[in-house]
Write a protein that binds this DNA or RNA. Structure first.
Lengths: 180, 180
DNA sequence: AGGACAGAATGACTGACGGTCAGTCACGAT
DNA sequence: ATCGTGACTGACCGTCAGTCATTCTGTCCT
């Protein structure tokens, strides 16, 4: 058993090592401008190994997208639990500010997340990492929806629009503006 | 002189022929999924000729983007001159509806335009077609700004926000929502 | 200790594709 | 008839995503 968990730890560490290298290279040169060879070299690892951990170049990039989504969700949760925000509306506003901050402090991750949300995903054939991204994105949206519902319950947000629809459309507007 | 103009016509026709083929292939398989060889074959032309008319694959795609921007501007002008719209606010609303229609009736062109607007352009080195796209996009924005200004003059739009900023931000919000 | 086995890791190789260019061809001018 | 121009071709090049036969390494068993 010990041997197995040591193995698992080593695998996880390798994954992180490759993702760290991918982050450095992709965020500097962009998806098109980056070769998998370059990522492998930056990770001081062979190309074959990269393909042992990620099905293809796109899934490798989605590994970064997932990191971005995790960080974003973390910030959204933090914002919605902030002491200053009492009503649902105030919480939603805090989440919006958190999103704006995220886009400014992690432009690379923001672009990755934006690209993922803009891309249409084919549920018929989605990779492992892609599926995880879909789940995380849904988690973020659920959080926003819950906050809107809270606002509708406490009277700070109008109730004539379904919560999820409101959450999505305001989010899209915010996103559109942040992106310019 | 006649010979020259016949030459010019033939060149323009070839350009259109290539763009038509590019439209069919790019909009079906996407930018990444399309090879220049495939476009050349669809246009019943050699690959070399495609590169005689367009500097590279991206500029070829931008040729389609420009078509999209032209159609969009046409619709925006039409909407802003519509008989039903009297005030600036109503005209702006009509333009918004036109944009929504455009996105539904020409999803391929909409995506091309959206991708162009999301991409950051390096003014230091922009291609011929790219420059034309920049100009067209500015034209569209100028139109929207003018309509907002009209609305501010006739009292249908608040004046506490600069017209261009208002035009851009509302446009971004609309765009964000259309894109979902 | 040593051998056997599993999975980690390598890097040479393949095929596809973006882009180039030497050369051909058609046509108008002289 | 000859020449010059420019449209047009397609073989070719370099690069890069993705594959796979092979080698290495650590673990377990005797």
């Amino acid at each position: 058993m010990q041997a197995q968990s040591r193995r698992a730890d080593a695998k996880a560490a390798r994954r992180i090592q490759i993702l760290d290298a991918a982050e450095a290279v992709f965020f500097e040169r962009g998806f098109e401008g980056t070769s998998v060879d370059a990522v492998a070299e930056a990770a001081t690892v062979s190309k074959g190994l990269v393909y042992l951990y990620f099905a293809n170049k796109h899934e490798l990039f989605l590994g970064l997208t997932l990191r971005g989504l995790e960080e974003l969700q973390r910030r959204m949760v933090e914002a919605s639990e902030s002491a200053e925000a009492d009503t649902g509306l105030e919480k939603y506003r805090a989440i919006g500010v958190a999103y704006l901050r995220f886009s400014q402090e992690h432009p690379g991750y923001f672009r990755a997340v934006a690209a993922f949300e803009a891309s249409e995903i084919d549920p018929a054939q989605l990779g492992e990492v892609e599926a995880a991204c879909v789940a995380k994105a849904r988690g973020c949206l659920d959080l926003a929806t819950a906050v809107v519902e809270e606002g509708q319950r406490d009277g700070s947000i109008r109730t004539d629009v379904p919560a999820r629809l409101a959450a999505v459309s305001v989010w899209s507007q915010m996103h559109g503006v942040i992106q310019h």
